[in-house]
Write a protein that binds this DNA or RNA. Sequence first.
DNA 1: TCTGGGGTCCTAGGACCC
DNA 2: TCTGGGGTCCTAGGACCC
Length: 447
Amino acid sequence: MSNSPSENPTVDEAPILHVDLDAFFASVEVLDDPTLKGKPVAVGGGGDRGVIASASYEARRYGVRSAMPSVIAKRRCPNLIILPGRFDRYEAYSRQFHDIVRDLTPDYEPLGLDEVFANLRSLRRLNVRPLSAAAELRRRINDELGLLCGVGLGRNKLFAKLASKESKPTVVDGRLVGGAGVVWVSPTLERQWLAELPVRALWGVGPATAAKLQKLGLHYVRDLAKVDEVTLAGHVGAAMASTLVAYAHGEDKREVTVDRVLKSVGHDQTFAKSLVGIDAIVEAAKGHAAVVARALRSQHRVARTITIAVRFDDLTSVSRSQTLSFGVDDEYAILAIAEALLQSIDIHNSVRLLAVHASSFLERDDNNVQMTFGLDPSSSNAREQAEAISRERQVSNEALRDAVDEVRAKFGKSSVGVAAELGERGVEIATQRGSNAFGPESHQHGE
DNA sequence: TCTGGGGTCCTAGGACCC
DNA sequence: TCTGGGGTCCTAGGACCC
């Protein structure tokens, strides 16, 4: 369903562009180590519980796909080279990718490291044609980064994304076929094309929703176009029903949002060997808290809500969260809350995954605790600053202790003895940082 | 085939305030 | 005394995306 040669849409006809880098992580690995070229390469977890994040086209010929358990991937392709992933490298390439897109227009929105939506409307006055802009984008990404990509053009995000998928090469019977590079869905064809797609092709329809739709006899997008939205809402929820019906009619109100604001950071880890007992879990939580704290500080954020989640060996999960009246960004505070929350969970089984997340961000300047003590950033008196920080930390510690107490009170009934013991340790951990008020970290505030 | 780690958004119920 | 309803925040869980 690609563009016919005679068609050359204007920016008004094809305002939205979607670029998707081919086999991104795996391609970067091959660029950094040319001896991998032509071999089946994947990036992901190599262990028993690993999953493939990205697979080269050579690996795809054997049926290796992203999100596939590595054990299965190895079974399908015994020679598969599974690499652990070097995200700093992918981020470096991603930044260059974004630089190239930005040369086309600053009006773009990244999705993960390897995809971008761009709004071409601001190019109207420059008389830029979307097809030539897309071709130039591909050429630069290939020349300057050594990466291949697919580009889709459409009336909205829905069609641009579907088109970029269509632009990609696919594996059929072990052979690589197609790969138009740039695809535009023309208005005369878009309805019919959409109608024939399986519901699973739509954004937001995953395995669970697809199964529900299947039960309702809705297999293709054309089926969705005829369904009563209120009835559908009874099965998939109001928001999902509304967007699905809109998509089925080719409507997509999502804008290209240039500066999306980060809303949460977290760290998840699936252990090669499940953890047994609360002590091992709390020990692991220390590392998680440190990772999350670092992420918060690097984003210049403080978080009011700490969430922990555990997944047991039977694959059931539970989560607990606590929202504080103030924001935190250091590992001791995060750990104190996380530990109290962990104590509230009935650890009835060995634990395969532990997650610690932070959300409800406050700008540092809006943080209640700091506000209360009116730290004056204009003051050049280092000693005053240090004393203010010390006071602030003390109050932070008291507030933190109260917050830990609150968690204990909320969940404590079932395990009073354990909770009491935790409380002591929680405060001890919190105090540890307070005693460090004049340590290295105060410099960044002080002088 | 037996499921990662980084995130986003939605839902439903309860608490609380007016 | 018994009662309503809207708005907002919090919590737990689920689904989805790359």
